[in-house]
Structure formats: structure tokens, C-alpha cells
Design a protein around this nucleic acid. Structure first.
Length: 480
RNA sequence: GGCCCCAUGGUCAAGCGGUCAAGACAUCACCCUUUCACGGUGAAAUCAGGAGUUCGAUUCUCCUUGGGGUCACCA
């Protein structure tokens, strides 16, 4: 059997991680089984349609490295892949369902519907129009009264409808708790519930992978498949991704969408990797995986039933792992926009900086805070020279710097290596402790307590002229 | 509220009748070290509660509690 899965988003805005994960699992499952991954746009609700949202769906998939085999832009013979372009066909299928007893016309207006509330305020349609005779329906239809088509849920007291979910196991819902939902709206358009069933069948979808909010409405869909006489797909419902213990991640949680994570400087493989791990765990202990490894490792058995809280700290860690694998050149390629946004924009050798930054940066937007000190030399805190462990004081720093300045001025190579030689020779004299020397130098040159690298590395980065200038200024302040 | 689902450390989680209850992130300590990181070693930390079933329950059943979902002419 050729496995076919689909991702069926509605174009209502940004792609948040919950959607992305549903999409990803559908893709992983299809690819793992040499199947076909279909993209279908569900835009039957014009009210919620957001301009540009379709483009976001395409660009997100493209950037994420999820390639659909079929979709609006890739005809695989099951099109159209946009629901609004399929609207002509749903009514006929609804009529077929009516003729087969799985649905019926309903002419009730809003006022009557509003009277249906039960004691607890819950409305459930009372099958009022099911009692209409064929002739009465004909007559109303001919007179042009507005109508909808409703699903006809069998009335089976104490009966339940069950199905096997791939992750949750047997799910049973009492017939009594299912309502005769609207399939065709009064504007002639199908509701999601109906379009979904028809499209999934027509597109030959074998495995429906979606969020678990559909877990308990799935029996209603199955009833439709049965009424039509169609084969039912297999279902794989996914647990929720939570913001915290009691709130699910929603579009309102602004940071939770793909584009924002990219902007914050997360690498695509890290985002995908982390998302994949949220709600699914591989067989072994390897957590860091690229897309092809995820495909290879994906297995429904590892999908968990309980919701999981989105932990950005872990995603940061994963991201840092991917960054550490980069060469300085690769780092510069993705990091350049972040350098440009920092205070050192246009200055210094980015590749040289990259070497220092790679083990120190978790996400690219950390860069600015790590390099801005390079441009903030003036007026640093003299207390930085004081260090108990090294028995270090400002007075000692002054002595060291005054002794070393002439030595440094003679160095023309001015590289990390050449500077190391000078410092080591100075250490050999035994006048001061190693730690004291490096501390004095580092603070004098950087004016900072924490720098992305040691004294000589920072000096090389700043260049001879600037370094000497800073040391002289530091000496003056220490004398001051 | 009815119905559906879920429940292992702070977080992600492995486990699928007998384990000293994996691993990862985060946290803390130590080591390495010219600061900060990286790296290394180690520590602390979990089976929501109560009844059963069983020689034996984290694991099976039921109840309680907690949480989530769903009850639209939205998807």
C-alpha cells in the first residue's frame, strides 16, 4: 500500500510550532514509509482568511526543509489542492450522502435553533427536519428557503462508536453525545468536518495525522465514511504542545512561531530537531538528529500521549550544538546580519570573531551582547583589576602594564602567537604570577570582566594601534 | 456541566509485573583554564493519592484528585 499523508493548514496567519510539528510528523511518517506527503490548503472559511498566509505556509515548509510531493504548486493528479477551488464538488457529495441516509436537509432558522438549549445550556440539534417527508423537502427546496445539510447520526441509546487511534488506542464516544453537525452551510460551502472527509477520501489519504483536538470528533467522520461506503483512513492524533502546565501554546504566545525563532537566531536544523523531540522520542539515546536521521528514526511507538511543555532552554542548547559544528566561515555566513546589528558593525574581522564566538553563542542573537564591549572601552570599572584568588590589585596591574608596554610596542607581527611569546617571556622573569599578568593585560585592553577569549586573542582582534592606545589609557587611569 | 483523553525528577522523557527507575536540558559542585565559555567528572532530583488483582506493582483494573480537549453554518 502506498502511504499518503497530508498537512492541511488553514491560511490564518503565522505557522506556530504546534502546526509545524503536526506537519513534520506527517512528513516524517510518509518519508519513513516511502510514502507521499500532500499539502492541502483549507480555506473554506473566508472570514478567517489572512492575506499572505498561504505564502507563509509555502515559505515555512521550504525553509524547514519539508518538501511536499503534491500540493497546489505540485499537481499529483489529485487536485485541486485548495479547498476553495474544490467548492463545486462538495454539494454533490452531500446530496449523495442524503440519498444514502447519512445526512438530511435542514431548514430550521436561527431563532428555532436558539430555543434548543437544554437545562445546562448546551444546544444539541433535535433532528427536527429529519421528520420531513421527501415531498416536503422538495417543496421547501423549490420555494428557495435557505437550508443546510446535516449529518444524520444514528440514534442508538447507550451505543458507542469506536476506532483505533495509532497513538491513543481505542477511542469510544457514545452516539448520544454526537450532534447532527452541519455539513453544507447555507452559503453552499462545506464545513471543515465535511470537506475534510471528502478531500481525504478523494486524495486517497491513508493516514490522517493531526492534533488531538479532533480525537473525540473522529467517530463522526468515520460514520460519514461508512455511509458513503468508503474505506476509512488510519488516524494518528498528536498530543498538545503546552506553554506551561495549564496553557497550551497558542498563536497568541507570540514567540512560538517558526519565523520568530529564525529571527532570534535559531538554526533551522535545531528548530526541526527540537520540535521533533517534543512529543516523540527516538528509540536510542541520540537526540541530536538532522532531518534524514529523523526520518530514519521516526516511529509511532515513540509518540507520547501526554502534552509536553515547550522548553526553549533545551532548544537553545540544541542550537548551540549545531553552532559548534560550524566552521568560522559557515558561522559568518549566517551570523553576518547579527554582526551588522551590533555595535561593531563593519569593524573587526568577522571570521576571527567567529572562532571566539562559536563555543560561546547559543543563538545568533546572543552575538551583540558578546561583542558590544569592543566598542565600549571608556570608563570601565577599575575594580576589575582586583582579584582575590590571584592576590591582584590595581597597583600591581600598573607595574605589570608599565613593564610590558615597551615590550609590546616592539612586536610587529601582533598575532595571538607572537603576543603569547612576549607574555610567556615576561612570565619567565618570575616577577609576577601568570594569572596576574593575563588579568592585567585583558582588563587593560578590553575594559571588561568577561570577554569572548583571552587577553592576547582580544589584543589581536583589536589590532596593535588600538591595543596600545587602550593600554596607555589604562595606565593613565591606574596612575590617576 | 456532559463526553473524550492524559498523569514518571523543574522540563523533555525511557520503562511496557521483579530495574540500585535510563538518557538529555536546566541546577549545583569539582577538574581543566589568562577571564568567560567549551570540555571532563560527579551530585541532587521523579513514579499524584487511595483501593484492588498478584508471591510481587511505576507497569494491569477501579475510584479520587489534578490537567487538557471538545460540545459553532471555525478550522
Amino acid at each position: 500500500m502506498n502511504i499518503r499523508t497530508r498537512f492541511a493548514p488553514s491560511p490564518t496567519g503565522f505557522m506556530h510550532v504546534g502546526n509545524l510539528r503536526t506537519c513534520l510528523y506527517g512528513y516524517l511518517f510518509a518519508k519513513k514509509n516511502n510514502g507521499t506527503f500532500v499539502l492541502r490548503i483549507e480555506d473554506t472559511d473566508q472570514e478567517r482568511y489572512v492575506e499572505g498566509a498561504v505564502e507563509i505556509i509555502y515559505s515555512t515548509l521550504a525553509k524547514a526543509g519539508i518538501v511536499h510531493d503534491e500540493g497546489p504548486d505540485k499537481d499529483g493528479g489529485y487536485g485541486p489542492y485548495v479547498q476553495s477551488e474544490r467548492k463545486g464538488m462538495y454539494l454533490d457529495y452531500a446530496k449523495e450522502l442524503v440519498s444514502k441516509g447519512g445526512a438530511y436537509y435542514c431548514f430550521c432558522d436561527k431563532d428555532r435553533l436558539d430555543t434548543l438549549s437544554n437545562d445546562s445550556g448546551i444546544k444539541k440539534y433535535d433532528k427536527h427536519c429529519l421528520k420531513l417527508t421527501l415531498a416536503e423537502v422538495e417543496e421547501k427546496l423549490n420555494s428557495g428557503i435557505a437550508y443546510v445539510i446535516r449529518q444524520n447520526i444514528p440514534t442508538i441509546e447507550a451505543g458507542v462508536s469506536s476506532y483505533e487511534d495509532m497513538v491513543f488506542g481505542t477511542i469510544s464516544v457514545p452516539y448520544n453525545d454526537m450532534e447532527d453537525g452541519v455539513l453544507i452551510k447555507s452559503d453552499g460551502m462545506p464545513t471543515y468536518n465535511f470537506a475534510n472527509v471528502v478531500d481525504d477520501h478523494l486524495m486517497n489519504i491513508t493516514h490522517v495525522i493531526r492534533g488531538m483536538e479532533y480525537l473525540s470528533s473522529t467517530p463522526k467522520y468515520n460514520l460519514m465514511y461508512d455511509s458513503f461506503g468508503w474505506d476509512k483512513p488510519l488516524y494518528m492524533h498528536l498530543p498538545q504542545i503546552m506553554k506551561d502546565a495549564t496553557h497550551k501554546l497558542s498563536k497568541r504566545y507570540g514567540d512560538a512561531n517558526f519565523e520568530d525563532f529564525l529571527a532570534k537566531g535559531y538554526l533551522v536544523p535545531a528548530i526541526i530537531n527540537y520540535i521533533a523531540l517534543l512529543g516523540w522520542s527516538p528509540n536510542g539515546n541520540q537526540e541530536k538528529m538532522y532531518m534524514d536521521e529523523l526520518i530514519e528514526a521516526f516511529d509511532v511507538k515513540g509518540v507520547s500521549k501526554s502534552g509536553s511543555i515547550f522548553d526553549e532552554a533545551k532548544m537553545r542548547w540544541l542550537n548551540s550544538e549545531y553552532i559548534k559544528l560550524m566552521t568560522p566561515e559557515q558561522f559568518v555566513e549566517v551570523a553576518t546580519p547579527y554582526f551588522e546589528m551590533s555595535k561593531i558593525s563593519g569593524k573587526y574581522d568577522y571570521v576571527m570573531l567567529a572562532k571566539l564566538l562559536i563555543p560561546r553563542v547559543e543563538i545568533l542573537s546572543d552575538i551583540a551582547s558578546k561583542v558590544d564591549f569592543l566598542e565600549e572601552f571608556d570608563g570601565y570599572d577599575m575594580a576589575l583589576y582586583v582579584n582575590k584568588k590571584n592576590k591582584m590589585t590595581g597597583a600591581i596591574a600598573l607595574e605589570i602594564l608599565e613593564s610590558m608596554l615597551p615590550l609590546l610596542e616592539e612586536d610587529n607581527a601582533w598575532s595571538n602567537d607572537s603576543l603569547q611569546v612576549i607574555v610567556n617571556d615576561f612570565i619567565e622573569t618570575g616577577a609576577y604570577k601568570k594569572g596576574q599578568i593575563f588579568l592585567a593585560l585583558r582588563v587593560a585592553v578590553t575594559g571588561s570582566g568577561m570577554t569572548p577569549g583571552g587577553a592576547t586573542e582580544m589584543a589581536e582582534l583589536l589590532g596593535k594601534t588600538e591595543s596600545i592606545r587602550r593600554i596607555e589609557e589604562s595606565i593613565n587611569r591606574l596612575r590617576g
